[in-house]
Design a binder for these strands. Sequence first.
DNA 1: TAAGAAAATGAAAATTACTTTCAGAAAAGT
DNA 2: ACTTTTCTGAAAGTAATTTTCATTTTCTTA
Lengths: 145, 145
Amino acid sequence: MDQIQIFTDYLRQQGLKNTSQRMVILEVFLNSNLHYSTEELYLKLRKSHPRIGYATVHRTLKLLAECGLASELNFGDGQTRYEPCRGGQHHDHLVCTRCGKIIEFVEPRIEKLQEEVAERYGFKIMSHRHELYGLCSDCSVASES
Amino acid sequence: MDQIQIFTDYLRQQGLKNTSQRMVILEVFLNSNLHYSTEELYLKLRKSHPRIGYATVHRTLKLLAECGLASELNFGDGQTRYEPCRGGQHHDHLVCTRCGKIIEFVEPRIEKLQEEVAERYGFKIMSHRHELYGLCSDCSVASES
DNA sequence: TAAGAAAATGAAAATTACTTTCAGAAAAGT
DNA sequence: ACTTTTCTGAAAGTAATTTTCATTTTCTTA
Ligand SMILES: [Mn+2]
Ligand SMILES: [Mn+2]
Ligand SMILES: [Zn+2]
Ligand SMILES: [Zn+2]
């Protein structure tokens, strides 16, 4: 089942309506590989769809997160970001604090160990965040003075 | 060297002044094992020291983070929290999304693997966040209906 | 297809956490 | 004690997010 179907099904099931704005926002969001903040996505959308308001973008991103099509990220810059969940492999992030670059990583051994930690405390993990902050390779070189 | 000494040394070194408010805030902060938000610490302090303002608490917590006596935490509830750094072992957190309980965990194997991940990308880690969200053992039991 | 009921939209206002401003108070060097 | 510098607390300002509300749109039901 594709993502548009997932979204329309979710809307129906919740008694919500399928609007053109919601479809446009979903489409633009899915066709990106970025980690958009609400503001950034709003600005991008405004170029092709100038009538869409900031509040609608915000509300739609929240809906997408609710139905599992987006995940909320927070890299400590004071803005919530969203990325498409493509149902693929889970990943975590390396965040360059100098240039802002975001690198995605997959490390099943860490995922496994964190489950082990949870068990140790009888804790049931629903979600997690694992972010490594520092300098990307470009920025490490650039900062050697 | 104790923490009060570290703080007073830091103040002097930065040309800042040693005030009674700063000392009181440091003391109350250190004598807690909680993960306080600025608001929470301000409210606690207000009971014994009603003249201390919110802004001073905020500025002092920032100072403590600067000099390494506190670390800033962010559990996605929109408030920055602070915990004392007791110079001991680094730890990460399990956060119960139902009752708010925070459990600290230490897992050197994860720390090691994340260094390995960083190397893979030529990335230099300066800090990291690793938080597991879900239900603590009490709340898992309570939510079985 | 035409209501009618329900929900969505966009602009503006409100909220929230945080940060800054500023005038008077306190600290520290001389 | 004097003088300079920093601090303090209240209030104002910011910035991201959330809510409000009048109007428009969707969607079910005749
Ligand atoms: Mn990502
Ligand atoms: Mn802790
Ligand atoms: Zn970089
Ligand atoms: Zn709990």
